[in-house]
């Protein structure tokens, strides 16, 4: 890759480069034109004949499941759906009961994830919102028309304990350990609650809002 004879800097450089704007390599910026979307979609429908029908069937299945879930939550738990906030807020005492019901009665057999978040005390329009944690859990049905069920649980910060889902789903083990490690939320009934990511002797829970991102950590020796 040889450099072209470099134009003299400063004084004359402007003149040599003035001939053309920053030169772009041939073809690099040229875009592959496509075809009209109707043509493309028609051709794909021919190549994959059952795709659209299956997608429609699954959408309706998923919608039916979502409705069933909403009805179930409304009747059994008295909570309204809250899709823009990820899921309804369920009372913490009924967390395990809800997970068991979803797994055994409604078929949400795949454990997806749990996500805890720390909300420090703040003033809202309606008053003072005390410091609390929010735990969001996601379960999923299997196979065609898979639907994910998400719900949130609010945990007071001073107690910071919630039921563990490990008796139901073995996959909850490490996810819950990680939330304990990073946020300090304890899980009642977890067989082996200890730190996962950080060394065992680490102090503090990094993902809490009062843990500064540049907290000095002593190098391990």
């Amino acid at each position: 890759m040889s450099d072209e004879p470099s134009a003299p800097v400063a004084a004359d450089g402007g003149a040599a480069a003035a001939a053309a704007p920053p030169s772009l390599l041939q073809g690099a910026a040229a875009i592959e034109p496509g075809e009209a979307s109707e043509v493309v979609l028609a051709r794909l429908a021919q190549a994959c004949p059952s795709a659209l029908a299956r997608a429609a069937e699954q959408t309706s299945k998923r919608a039916a499941r979502a409705q069933a879930l909403e009805g179930f939550l409304r009747e059994r738990f008295g909570v309204e759906p809250d899709p823009s906030n990820g899921g309804p807020l369920v009372p913490a005492e009924r967390h395990f009961e809800l997970a068991r019901a979803l797994k055994e009665e409604l078929g949400y057999k795949l454990y997806v994830t749990v996500c805890a978040s720390h909300w420090p005390a703040q003033k809202t329009k309606t008053g003072e919102d005390p410091e609390h944690f929010e735990l969001a859990t996601v379960l999923r049905t299997l196979g065609s028309g898979t639907h994910q069920a998400c719900w949130r649980v609010r945990i007071a910060a001073d107690v910071a304990v919630v039921d563990s889902l490990v008796p139901l789903f073995a996959g909850a083990d490490w996810q819950e350990r990680e939330q304990f490690d990073l946020l300090g939320v304890r899980f009642r009934g977890h067989p082996d609650l200890r730190r996962l990511m950080l060394p065992d002797e680490w102090e503090g829970h990094p993902l809490r809002k009062d843990y500064a991102i540049d907290t000095r950590c002593v190098p391990w020796r």
Binding site: S6, V9, G13, P22, S23, L24, A29, P33
Partner: peptide, 26 residues
Amino acid sequence: GEKKLRLSWANASVLAEHQNPERKHA
């Protein structure tokens, strides 16, 4: 910039042109 500009393919305008939501081309 003096010596190697020919080795660049895009600046902000070119990238913006790629990503222009109004872009229509054949």
